[in-house]
Amino acid sequence: MIRAHAAAECVEALAKKWAVEIVQTLERGPRRYNELRKEVSEQLTPKVFTRVLRRLEAENIVRREVVNDSPPGVEYRLTAFGRSLLAALDDVAELWTRRHSP
C-alpha cells in the first residue's frame, strides 16, 4: 500500500502541465527565470510560467534562490525530491518502452 501511495504522489506531482518539461530542463543545472522559460517553451506566458514554478516550489520539487549578480534575479534548481522524480520518470519511460515496443 505504501508503494502505491508513493506512486500516486509521484504521478500527481508530475501530471501538472509543464512540470515534466521544467524538471527535465533543470536536470542539466540551475537556470535563471528567462533562460528556463525559453528552454521549456517560449509559448508560455510569464503569468502561467510563474504559477507553475510557484506550485513546483510549494511541492518542494524546485527551489528558488535570489541571485545578487548583475543584473539581480532569481535562479531555479531541483531539490533532492525533484531529483528523485527524475529516476521515476526514467523508470516509467523504460517500462512503457519495453511494453510498447515491437
Rank of each mutant, 00 (worst) to 15 (best):
M1K: 04
M1R: 05
I2W: 00
I2L: 03
I2D: 04
R3K: 08
A4W: 05
A4Y: 09
A4F: 10
H5F: 13
A6N: 06
A7P: 03
E9R: 14
E9I: 11
E9F: 09
E12F: 08
A13W: 00
L14N: 12
A15G: 14
A15K: 04
A15T: 03
K16C: 05
K17R: 12
K17N: 06
W18L: 09
E21Q: 13
T25I: 01
E27G: 01
E27S: 08
R28H: 14
R31Y: 01
R32L: 01
Y33S: 05
Y33M: 02
N34E: 13
N34P: 00
E35S: 07
E35W: 00
L36W: 03
R37A: 05
K38W: 03
E39T: 05
V40S: 00
S41V: 00
Q43T: 09
T45H: 01
P46I: 00
P46E: 05
P46M: 01
K47V: 07
K47Q: 06
F49A: 05
F49P: 00
T50M: 02
T50L: 04
V52M: 06
L53F: 02
R54K: 15
R55D: 11
R55T: 11
A58E: 15
E59S: 12
E59W: 08
N60D: 14
N60K: 10
I61L: 15
I61P: 06
V62M: 03
R63P: 00
R63D: 00
R64W: 03
E65S: 10
V66K: 12
D69Q: 06
D69F: 01
D69I: 04
S70C: 00
S70F: 03
S70P: 02
P71N: 06
P72C: 00
P72S: 06
P72L: 06
G73E: 03
G73Q: 02
V74P: 01
E75M: 06
Y76F: 15
R77W: 01
R77A: 10
L78I: 06
L78N: 02
T79I: 04
G82K: 04
S84L: 08
S84H: 09
L86V: 11
L86N: 03
L86F: 08
L86K: 02
A88G: 11
A88Q: 11
L89A: 07
L95V: 14
L95Q: 10
W96M: 09
W96R: 13
R98Q: 14
R98L: 15
R99M: 15
R99L: 15
R99H: 15
P102E: 14
